[in-house]
Write a protein that binds this DNA or RNA. Structure first.
Lengths: 109, 109
DNA sequence: ATACTATATGAGTATATAATCACATAGTAA
DNA sequence: TTACTATGTGATTATATACTCATATAGTAT
């Protein structure tokens, strides 16, 4: 790569994007936008095993998307900064463009 | 998942996020923000095999991030909508927050 | 102390992704 | 036509990811 200086930055950014690039994780983020929740409730809402949800949560913590703290037996997870929600509008932007393109193709037929 | 209606949407969104979640692909996007480029030049800039770059490009086209057209022997790829660049500010937001948190931890020591 | 609950993690498996090499295709030029 | 170049794709391998189950840990309650 010509600008190999940027490589480490791209790797960090890729980690963030990857942390968001999974249906279950997006569902978790969407759930957490209404407030902090424990693993237990997240797992029930998502409809997946707690152990599996636990792994997804750690992954997002590692990426810097979520924060967590203990509360008795439970561990409460929450969105770290509102900027995470910006991703949704970014992704919606791309998807809307996709629909627009598909329409144009159909009109030619 | 309680709101399984959202599932298909989350899957589409995850596809977009995943398409961005790779260092090489971020480098490609960063390169294309200055204008359309052929596979050949992208591969040279990125420093990876053409066949490999070609696959990364198809993946991003499938996700709706890139568009492409033929020009003689070459295939020119380009960013589809400026909204893709919004991702960079989103990811930077998360990374800045991460640095901020790390600083706070160090201050306590 | 025991019993219980929430969460995390190791091990194993299945699937997905990335990368490389070889080859096929499509367009160009002589 | 042949020779050349750019790109895409099949096959393979290596690695990463997702998931499940069983088990360990930490906190609570009796």
């Amino acid at each position: 790569m010509s600008d190999s200086k940027k490589r480490p930055l791209f790797e960090k950014q890729a980690q963030v994007a990857q942390a968001i690039g999974h249906p279950l994780r997006l569902a978790i983020i969407d759930f957490l936008k209404d407030g902090p929740q424990c693993v237990c409730d997240i797992a029930e809402y998502i409809g997946s095993e707690r152990s599996n949800v636990s792994r997804h949560l750690s992954l997002m913590v590692a990426a810097g998307i979520l924060g967590h703290h203990k509360k008795g037996l439970q561990v409460i997870y929450e969105l770290k900064c509102p900027c995470i929600l910006d991703f949704f509008s970014c992704m919606s932007g791309v998807l809307k463009q996709r629909v627009k393109d598909d329409k144009e193709i159909l009109e030619v037929l």
